[in-house]
């Protein structure tokens, strides 16, 4: 059978379990931040921890770490577009 294109890297079980444990730990940190920190600080904790969790899923579970720069770049462009629109929205809300 003819196969073209790169076959993705086989992710070892150990790496997958480690990423999962980190994700669970970050979820715990998120809950702890939401219940113990001042609301303004907990919002910042959420703004940092949640994208890190998403990044780990993208990077390891979705194999983005082993993809070609074109695909990785397109993912960043898509997410960057969202961040840009959200930034423009808040600039409109705060300065209108």
């Amino acid at each position: 059978m003819d196969r073209t294109g790169s076959e993705t890297h086989v992710m070892p079980y150990r790496t997958l379990v480690r990423v999962w444990l980190v994700l669970l730990g970050l979820t715990g940190a998120l809950v702890a931040a939401g219940t113990t920190l001042h609301p303004s600080l907990s919002v910042w904790a959420m703004l940092v921890i949640t994208p890190v969790k998403a990044g780990l899923i993208f990077y390891y579970f979705m194999h983005l770490k082993y993809e070609k720069p074109l695909l990785t770049g397109l993912v960043f462009v898509t997410l960057g577009l969202l961040v840009l629109v959200i930034g423009l929205l808040f600039s409109d809300l705060f300065y209108r």
Binding site: D2, R3, T4, G5, T8, L71
Partner: peptide
Amino acid sequence: HVDHEGAR
């Protein structure tokens, strides 16, 4: 013919 990269 299998194009893994294209499918992905």
